[in-house]
Design a protein around this nucleic acid. Structure first.
Lengths: 262, 262
DNA sequence: TAGTGGTCTAGACCACTTC
DNA sequence: AAGTGGTCTAGACCACTAA
C-alpha cells in the first residue's frame, strides 16, 4: 500500500497528464483538499512537493500551485559543431543550437570568466597532464532570456592558447566564431570529438546558479576535442538542467572485422 | 535562509562526500539527532529523505540509515554494437556491454515478451507508418543479478520479422547473436543508427519495475537503426536508472562545406 | 520486546501576494 | 487584512528487524 501522499500525488499527476488540468491552470488549494478529506495539511503538502519535484507543477506563496508549461526540449545534435558555421560564418556552437531550435538569439545571454588554475583530476587525465599542472579554464553560464540553461567550462593547455584572444581576461564571449575558431587560427584545427553524458543530482551551488527546481536533476557532459593527429585541444565540462535538453547522435555501426590490419 | 531540513541534509551530505561517513557506515539514528537538538523527528526525517532522494544513503526500517556504496557507472559506447560480435560471434549487445565492463554474465538475467500491438505515436513516426499500424514489440527487462538495470523495447515492422525466431512467442532471449543477427539472416544488414537521450522522472510502474529509489530519475533512450539504403528496421526505447549508466559517443566534427554538391 | 525508519495529524507560525 | 504555500513541532501509530 503506497502512502497517502503518494496516492494523492499520483492521482493529480494522472489528471495533469490526461489534460484534465491544463498547463497554466490552478490546482486546488492545499487547504481545500484538507477540507475535502484528502488528509492533513502536511500530507497534502507532501503530495504537492512530490509533484513539484517531478516538474509537473510550480508552487508559489501567495499565488497557489499551477500546472507547469512544459518547455520543449532543446535537441542537441552533432551538427551544432559544423565547421562551416564557426570557420566560415560568425556563429558559435551555442548560438547554432538556438538557431537550429528556432529560438531568437539575444546578446548578453552568456557570461564568461577566464582563469588559470591547477587542473582538476579529470581535466588532467583528459589532457594527459600531471595532476595539478596549470591550465586555462574558460567558464560560461549560458542563459535564454532570464533563465539559465547550462554551464560550460572549457579547459585548454597554456601552450595552445597563450596570447590568443581566448585568454583575454576582458569579460565577454570569445568573439567571432567562438573558441574553435581561435584554435583554428592558432593552427589547431579540430577533427573529432568524444562526448560522455550521465545524469546526477545537482550540487547546492548548481541549484542556485541554474535556478533549478527542487528535486530537479542535471546532466553532466564531458566533451573532449582532438585535432587530426590525436592531440587534445579542449576538454569541456557542461552541466545542463536535465529537463530542458535532449541529445542526439548519429553513427555508423562499427565493424572491427572490416578494419584494415595494422 | 534555507530550511532547517535542507541545512541538515547539506551538512550530512558534505560529511559523506568528504569521507567522514564512509560507504556502508551507519548515519546517526533519527531519534538521536532529535535528542541532539537538530529538530523534531519530522524535520530530521525530511533531511534523511532528501539524502535518500539524492542517492547518498539508503534507509530501511529496523536497520537504520547507511551510506550507499556508489556502484560504478556502466559506460555504454558505440562499440557495443560491433558487427563482429553479433554477426561472427555469439554475443548480443547487452552481453557485450557487460563483457566490456568486466562483469560476469549469468543466464536468466533477461526476460522477454513478444506482442503484436498498434504502433504508439513515436514508433509510428520512426518507422514512417500511420499511427495505429500493427508492429511487433519485443520488450526486455535486463537485470544484473537481482538488480534490474534497464528496460528495452524494440519495435519491428511485421514484414521484416514475420516468420523469424524473433517473433517466436516462446519466452527467452532472441538466441545466438540477438536481434541484429536475426535481421541480418533475413536480409536486413544494419548500417547506421541514431540514438537520442533525455532524462525524466520515472512513471510509477517504472519505479516498481526497475526498483528505483525514491526521487531517482531515469534516462530514456531512443534508438533508430537503419540499413544502408535508409530503411528503418528497428526502433527501440530504453529506460535506464539514471545513476547507473553513462553514455559515450565518438564522432568526426562535421563540415557541411566539404560535402559533395548534390 | 525493544529499537529502527515511515506516515499522519493538529496546530502554530512564517513568507509572500493581493486587495 | 485575508489568503496562499512552506516549515516546524509534538506526539500517536504503523511496518519491519533483531534478539
Amino acid at each position: 500500500m503506497a502512502p497517502k501522499w503518494r496516492e494523492l500525488a499520483d492521482k493529480l499527476a494522472e489528471r495533469i497528464r490526461s489534460g484534465e488540468y491544463a498547463p497554466g491552470q490552478q490546482l486546488p488549494y492545499i487547504r481545500d483538499l484538507v477540507e475535502a478529506g484528502e488528509g492533513s495539511k502536511s500530507t497534502v503538502h507532501a503530495a504537492y512537493r512530490a509533484l513539484e519535484a517531478e516538474g509537473l507543477v510550480t508552487s508559489s506563496r501567495g499565488h497557489g500551485t499551477v500546472v507547469r508549461e512544459q518547455a520543449p526540449l532543446k535537441r542537441l545534435g552533432i551538427a551544432r559543431y559544423d565547421k562551416a558555421k564557426w570557420r566560415d560564418g560568425d556563429e558559435v556552437a551555442f548560438i547554432a543550437d538556438r538557431v537550429a531550435s528556432g529560438r531568437a538569439y539575444k546578446r548578453g545571454e552568456q557570461t564568461q570568466t577566464i582563469s588559470r588554475v591547477p587542473a582538476p583530476p579529470i581535466v588532467a587525465q583528459a589532457h594527459g597532464l600531471p595532476e595539478g599542472a596549470e591550465v586555462y579554464a574558460r567558464a560560461r553560464l549560458v542563459k535564454e532570456g532570464d533563465q539559465p540553461t547550462h554551464t560550460l567550462t572549457s579547459y585548454y593547455r597554456p601552450e595552445h592558447v597563450e596570447g590568443t584572444r581566448l585568454v583575454d581576461p576582458t569579460p565577454g564571449p570569445a568573439g567571432r566564431g567562438g573558441g574553435f575558431r581561435v584554435l583554428y587560427d592558432a593552427g589547431y584545427e579540430i577533427d573529432h570529438m568524444r562526448e560522455e553524458l550521465f545524469a546526477r543530482v545537482p550540487k547546492p551551488d548548481e541549484v542556485e546558479q541554474l535556478k533549478l527546481l527542487p528535486g530537479e536533476w542535471v546532466v553532466e557532459l564531458h566533451r573532449t576535442t582532438y585535432t587530426a593527429d590525436g592531440t587534445v585541444v579542449e576538454f569541456a565540462v557542461g552541466v545542463h538542467a536535465a529537463t530542458r535538453f535532449a541529445w542526439s547522435y548519429d553513427f555508423k555501426v562499427p565493424d572491427s572485422a572490416a578494419e584494415a590490419p595494422k
